[in-house]
Amino acid sequence: MLYALCFLLFMIGLYCAITKKNMVKIVIGIMVMEYAVNLFLIMLGYRTNGIAPIIGKGDLNPETGQVLSSFINGSVDPLPQALVLTSIVISLGSLALMISLCIRIYGKYRTFDITKIRRLRG
């Protein structure tokens, strides 16, 4: 059910990115899609009553120093978390690039409407 709600959020972002004619609205749609995808990847690694993948003192075997199996069987998936961390930072970079394009186009055409910036102006 949570997956379906996440997919609904993705579809809202897709609708916004495809049908809106305002450039900033398109950027907003792409951002909403990014949130939905990141959230979905984290949800795939979630376990009910899971614990964060950080090893504390109580998770170690006092004699051997090995990680206890209760930690391995109770922790959530660390791999999507690491990759989503990368994805979030990259989304900031792409947002900066898209917004700078919008500001530049606004400075040239005085509008955000993508139907009015078709004609070329030197």
Binding site: V76, Q81, V84, I88
Partner: peptide, 17 residues
């Protein structure tokens, strides 16, 4: 969802964005 690292990064990135 037990992902504290991502929560911190998301707040920082959100403010900048």
């Amino acid at each position: 969802l037990c992902a504290p690292d991502i929560a911190i990064t998301q707040i920082v990135v959100e403010v900048l964005g």
